[in-house]
Amino acid sequence: MTISTPSNSPPTDAASDPAIDLAVQDVVPESVDLAEEFESSGVREVMEELDKTLIGLAPVKQRIRETAALLLVDRARKRFGLAHSVPTLHMSFTGNPGTGKTTVALRMADLLHRLGYVRKGHLVTVTRDDLVGQYIGHTAPKTKDMIKKAMGGVLFIDEAYYLYRPENERDYGQEAIEILLQAMENDRDDLVVILAGYADRMDRFFNSNPGFRSRVAHHIDFPDYSDAELQQISELMVTEQNYEFSDKALTAMAEYINLRRKQSHFANARSIRNAIDRMRLRQANRLFQANAGPVGRKDLITLEEGDVRASRVFTGGLDSDAKPILPSAED
């Protein structure tokens, strides 16, 4: 389990402050400027950051924008004293490996916090072994413990389908599911649950647990990245780590992405991240071996074509390699 806290606290905790809420209800405003709300709640910042740092994922961004709009309008309605019920915000993220599900979940927690729908905005990431116990009576306290930790924030259940194991009828996963369902229903105001996993298995999971399907209002599908998007992502990652590609390395990288996609165990952005890590390794090694006098800043930050081309992907990839020299899964 990991707990991540939002990077910066939002400017408007006022939305969740009951004292201010009361004062607002006394004076019913004439009109509410939604654009102004959009600015002041800090939602715009989150959206802009989302656009800037998340490449591609158009349908995901669209859904997030819609959710944000709903929450903003809901907040405005509340000011007028119009009937409002807290919308169900439980979500399911489906998509292939490395398509940014966890990253978006973290942003989502921040966004919901800024809108005042979760009080703390921290993200608790759990998997099956954090929820399911080993013996009878162990599961309920474990699951409840995690729910308690996630209260006021977002509970992110990665690879949620592992909770349900129909092949073993004595599996305790079912117990965890029942407790989760109960919490998702009763503590809707305090807790947002996000389930994530690969699309086909999540479908099977929802089909065998209809309770989950009906309690999860938003199903968001994460598409695979296109080659151009992966190229952009690689450049972004390299820049974030204070490196840069030489021109030739850039072309090599484009080829690399194209080839890598056709090989086994392709995991979108994650594959790219791993590839870049290995390129850094090769670059360091090259600088060391070359031993050509003092190295400057330019040398230290540039990834050359050779660093990219040395990858096994260019010689047919993992499958064709008879003697694996590096114990790496993907190179």
Partner: peptide, 14 residues
């Protein structure tokens, strides 16, 4: 003891 809890709602559950 209830360690690692961020929000009062979790404690109130207990």
């Amino acid at each position: 003891p209830l360690f690692d809890i961020a929000d009062a709602a979790g404690v109130m559950m207990e």
